[in-house]
Write a protein that binds this DNA or RNA. Sequence first.
RNA 1: GGCCUCGUAGUUCAAUGGAUAGAACGAAAGUUUCCUAAACUUUAAAUACAGGUUCGAUUCCUGUCGAGGCUACCA
Length: 696
Amino acid sequence: MINAQEILFKSVQKALKELYSIDSTNIVFQKTRKEFEGDFTLVTFPFIKEAKKSPEQVGQELGDYLVKNEKTVIAFNVVKGFLNIVLSDAFWLSYFNSVKDSSFIGFKKPESSGRTVMLEYASPNTNKPLHLGHVRNLLVGFSVAEILKANGHKVIKASIVNDRGIHICKSMLAWKKWGNNETPVSTGMKGDHLVGKYYVKYDQEYKKEIDYAQKTALQAWIKIWAKKPAKEGEISNQMIMLFAVMIFKLIQSFDQGKPKQLTEVEIDKLASGNVQDLEEEREEEFMDDAAHMFYNGLKKELEGKKLFYKIGTDGKKEFDEIFEFIKAKLPLVMEVQDMLRKWEAGDKETVNLWKMMNGWVYEGFDVTYKTVGVDFDQTYYESNTYILGKEIVQDGLAKGIFYKKENGSVAIDLRPEGLDEKVVLRSDGTSVYITQDIGTAIERFKQFPDLKQLIYTVGNEQDFHFKVLFKILEKLGYDWAKECYHLSYGMVELPEGKMKSREGTVVDADDLLGEMFTTAEETTKELGKVEGFNEDELKDLYHTIGSGALKYFILKVDPKKKMLFDPKESIDFNGNTGPFIQYTHARIKSVLRKSESSFEASLNSISFNALEREIIKHIYDFESVVEESGNTYSPALIANYVYELTKTFNKFYHDHSILKEENEDVKVFRLQMAKACSQTIANAMGLLGIKVPEKM
RNA sequence: GGCCUCGUAGUUCAAUGGAUAGAACGAAAGUUUCCUAAACUUUAAAUACAGGUUCGAUUCCUGUCGAGGCUACCA
């Protein structure tokens, strides 16, 4: 394509050499600001030292040289150290003629760069429906993938589904205990929402256990404390454990609907520090399987920890510390951990339950993905990949990249790199999260031998995780490691702060989308713009406008930055919004439909008015904006760009008539320009995953 | 405590070290015999603070104050 900056670069380089004997490759042009005449601006300050002249003088002399020697430059002006260069209408027209009929203005040819990248996004957990945070992930991920495609790369869109682990078991357990065999069909609920309901249920029930445990335990503790346990003014681990086990028993009685309290006798025994009796009693009296597991679990936790407390204070701090242990070992926790063990052991009933409930979730997710308009070329499941990475760690251990700690765990020391020490294998030989990330990354490069880069669309709370991951891969000797990129996006915050699923402050994705469609419908009806549409077309239109508003709202913000979303203030449809841009597109299309004459033939010469010139230059900029947004992984650049273009066109549309223009050449040009504009708008919006309507 | 982000109009967002810091919403005022008024025009309104580097700093450096995140043998 015709490149103005390249032409100017060469001429200025020559001019500097001839006029001042300066050899410079550091010549950068910026767009001339609207308030000055000109197309491109050269800042002359960098050259004044070597030229030994004032900025104004350098500007004047360079300008003279360009006008004389470069035919595309027809005029210039100098303001302080700024040389504003004016290119000829002929230049802009020839550029315009080269793109006016293209349907991929600004785009490189598909897969022309020869580069293959995998972009991972979405990455949901299968225990709850998607929320606003996921929506930003989906939109940013999808859009960046499209932008990279527009830059000529081959992009594999991938999702890794977090379908296993303790949090998945929570919803399974809760459904099993309290679900009454509910299904999406029996309840009419979307599958992911049904499963999410039981994830919340688990948490509520667990909270009840905690509350009761705390109340009961504190009462007993106060009594024990008041009796000042003997033993040199100290309370032993053993005693704490017995205490904890008794609390555990109480919670069981609570869960069975028959809450009990510790008896005075029991408290006396605990307080006296004479725990012999209780220990003997524990077998028959209160050590069933669950309690036994609890006892052993707690024993392991406390091993090696010094938990002797001096008497003297009110004992509250001590209680809190002990209670932290108890909290992590309550009956529901034990049960859910047991379920995970069964899942890992392949227990049939558990696996079947897991398959069934995950199936519900996938059906739900598919609906949401379809509504949002995102898709994947590859789907990975953690249940298949969580084992990966262990051998790699063993290899790395042999090579001395990792080391074994005294407790048997394997770790890497990244402190010299300014990071931290990181465990990559537990002392029992099981993997941690990063282990499988190491494994899956390597696996993907094996699966796709052409792969050059992995991009992870994950929130910025994981910045540290990815720094560590990439550094480890680099140390393991994979040269693609430095090509890996964490597409880190900021959190979406509500006016009252961060979203917390446990506190019910999340904005549900399906609800949000539904509201957007409704608002689009209401607004369209209010404006009386429903004529000429049938039912299906209208539904389509509301979907286009509603999701366009939401997508644009989210994508216009730099992904790296956190953003605020206020659900109470619904998203605007006026001003710097998706619908504004969609509206402009529809308006152009309406004009084009109404044009009776054809306007295909290229013009040989024309003189532009200021707005026409501005619009052509805007279209010209699109290609470099697409490049820049690809280089910086930023859909926001595209959003801001298309808004500016649209605004400029609207101004033109307001000030000048297209169809009623009397000069035939001008009319033809304006139609061509309008068409190119609508194409550019459609292309830009397409990169954001936003459709543009023919009419609205 | 350590590490990493971020502080721009009332609010939500812009500004490869460059000219007089741009928009939108909200506020105030205006535009419709004219291709779609989801539009257009006008007004008021901001770089947290203090230093430094530079011809030039919202941008780079240092410090203070303020907000958020990370800091697990969790995922």
